[in-house]
Amino acid sequence: MNRQRYRDFLLFVGPPLLVYGVFCLYPTVAGIIGAFTEWDGYSQTQRFTGLANFRKMAADDVFWTALQNNLFLVAVPGIMLLALGLYFSSALRDERTPGRRVFQFTYLFPNILAGVVVATLWSFVYSPSFGVVKGTLEALHNALRFVRLDFVANALSLKELSRQAWLEPQYFMRALVPMLVWAGTGFFVVLFLAGMQNIPRDLYEAARLDGANEWQVFRHVTWPGLSPIMLAAVTFVIIGGMKTFDCIWVMTQQHVPDRNQVLATYVYQQAFSEARMGYGTAVALVLLFVTLGFVLVAHRMMRR
């Protein structure tokens, strides 16, 4: 009886464990070990070098730039995503808002598009030849000239701005922000709306009877009621910002300039373009620990 059960268990769990073990678990363990080695990916030799990779990283400017860029991508789009998500979900919670379903449906849509597609679409937006940003700035410039406010247009240097190549390295990281917010907001709207469904309706009705205004309702009912889902949302923002790869890779046309590197693109560049697999993997290990660290700190702070 007992042996039969073990045999059945092996029948059910064995095959999945084999595939998972070989193609996910093994590369993970090999990656953790590989972070402490020198290893070029061509020769069969993998030399154990202790902490050398990490020492090298501490002195590597590009690594620090990449880490900084990741922090930027967690913090700046993150705050906007959470704020817009809260705002739109509060507006859509109100059943008297016309077209709620249509809004919910469309808002989420960019989120299910591939990062590659979103990045390509936004390359058009920023394109200096027929970009949306260029068109808008030019239209604004012409409108101001038309009403004889040339000096305003000149002061804002709209003409010059409209000729700007927004994806040049010095503007690139900031140019990513509108795109990430465009693509991500819908997800947080839907997430917060789901969270609000768990808040008892009587609380909202009681607040209304007490004559609370929209802000007070938000501050005293919605905000505290959302705290469990907020934890998930913040975790999501951190992980999303730390693992960014596709959009940077595509928008820099697969050659990421040093000042636009993030950790994931730097891992790829080091491991595959430079054939420094050991060093690249060490950067990836740091990426893992930094992400875990942030998530833990966020959870600690939000528990209070």
Binding site: P27, G34, K243, V267, A271, M277, V283, A284, L285, T291
Partner: peptide, 8 residues
């Protein structure tokens, strides 16, 4: 994270 497993 995917990045950690790429090389292996």
């Amino acid at each position: 994270p995917t990045a950690l497993t790429l090389a292996p």
